[in-house]
Simulated scan of single mutants.
Amino acid sequence: MQMFTQQEIDELSALHFINQIDAHLRVVSKIRIVADTGDRPPRVILLLELLYDRSRVDQLSFDLHNHSYADIIEVARNVGDNEYLMCEIDNLLSGHGE
């Protein structure tokens, strides 16, 4: 069970990265921390805003359950290097998203 300090939660919540995927596609990644009840750790949500030629086309979100602080930053910073995220983005943009 991953627990974060208040400082780590504040830092993660303030982060956003712009990932230039190709000449037309940019992905803005942000982290949202959702407090949970009881002794459970907060949920960490990766929000991806998809921009095509600077126009917002869609948004995706992913639960980063059990990821470490460093891993969360790595995923958000390097969306283009993550095969799973890129597959989900490709599916959404090609109209095959669920």
Rank of each mutant, 00 (worst) to 15 (best):
Q2F: 04
Q2W: 04
M3A: 05
M3G: 01
M3F: 15
F4D: 12
F4P: 03
F4M: 02
T5M: 08
T5I: 07
Q6S: 13
Q7D: 15
E8F: 01
D10L: 01
D10A: 10
D10F: 01
D10S: 12
E11C: 07
S13T: 12
A14C: 06
H16M: 12
F17A: 02
F17P: 03
N19E: 06
N19W: 10
N19F: 04
Q20V: 13
Q20K: 15
Q20M: 09
Q20H: 15
Q20T: 09
I21A: 03
D22E: 05
D22I: 07
A23C: 10
L25D: 01
R26D: 14
V27M: 09
V27N: 05
V27Y: 05
V27A: 04
S29L: 06
K30V: 01
K30Y: 08
I31T: 10
I31D: 00
R32N: 09
R32Y: 01
R32G: 03
I33N: 00
V34F: 02
V34N: 06
A35V: 00
A35L: 04
D36V: 11
T37V: 09
D39C: 10
R40P: 01
R40K: 11
P42D: 08
V44Q: 00
I45F: 02
L46Q: 10
L46I: 07
L46T: 04
E49R: 13
E49L: 12
L51P: 07
Y52D: 10
Y52T: 12
Y52P: 01
D53F: 08
D53N: 15
R54D: 15
S55M: 11
R56M: 11
V57K: 10
D58I: 12
Q59I: 11
Q59A: 07
F62L: 10
F62C: 05
L64S: 02
L64H: 02
N66T: 13
N66A: 12
S68K: 05
Y69M: 00
A70E: 13
D71A: 12
D71K: 02
I72S: 04
I73E: 10
E74W: 00
A76T: 09
R77C: 06
G80M: 05
D81C: 07
N82P: 05
N82D: 15
E83D: 14
E83N: 11
Y84R: 09
Y84M: 09
Y84P: 06
L85R: 09
M86E: 08
M86N: 06
E88F: 02
E88I: 11
D90P: 01
N91F: 02
L92C: 12
L93R: 12
S94T: 14
G95K: 09
G95R: 10
G95E: 11
H96A: 08
H96S: 08
G97N: 15
E98D: 15
E98V: 13
